[in-house]
Amino acid sequence: SQTQRTQDENEARRIAEEWKRRGYDVEVRNRNGHWEVTWD
Rank of each mutant, 00 (worst) to 15 (best):
W35Y: 05
E11T: 09
T6I: 10
E18M: 10
I15R: 03
E27H: 13
T38F: 13
A12V: 03
S1W: 14
R29W: 05
V37F: 02
G33P: 01
V28F: 03
D40R: 15
E17Y: 03
I15F: 04
R29I: 14
N30F: 15
T6M: 09
E17S: 05
I15K: 04
G33R: 02
Q2F: 11
E36Y: 10
E36M: 04
K20W: 13
D25N: 13
Q4E: 09
N10R: 11
E17N: 07
N30R: 12
E9Y: 12
W39D: 01
W19N: 05
R5A: 09
W35M: 01
E36W: 07
D25G: 04
D25S: 09
R14Q: 09
E9F: 08
T6Y: 15
A12I: 03
V28I: 12
E27P: 00
S1Y: 12
W35A: 00
W35P: 00
R29D: 04
Y24A: 04
R21F: 05
R22H: 09
I15E: 03
R14E: 06
E11D: 07
D8N: 10
E36K: 01
E9W: 09
V26D: 00
R5D: 06
G33I: 01
D8L: 05
R31E: 10
Y24H: 06
R13H: 09
E27F: 06
N10D: 13
Q2V: 12
T3Y: 08
Q2H: 14
W39G: 03
E36S: 03
Q7K: 14
W19A: 11
N32D: 14
N10H: 11
K20H: 10
E27K: 10
G23Q: 01
N10S: 13
H34R: 08
R5W: 13
G33E: 04
R31C: 15
H34I: 15
N30V: 12
Q2A: 09
V37M: 02
E36G: 01
N10W: 12
G33A: 03
R31F: 11
R13A: 05
W39N: 03
W35H: 01
W35Q: 00
K20D: 07
R31L: 14
E27D: 08
V37N: 01
I15W: 13
Q7T: 13
T38M: 10
D25V: 10
R31A: 11
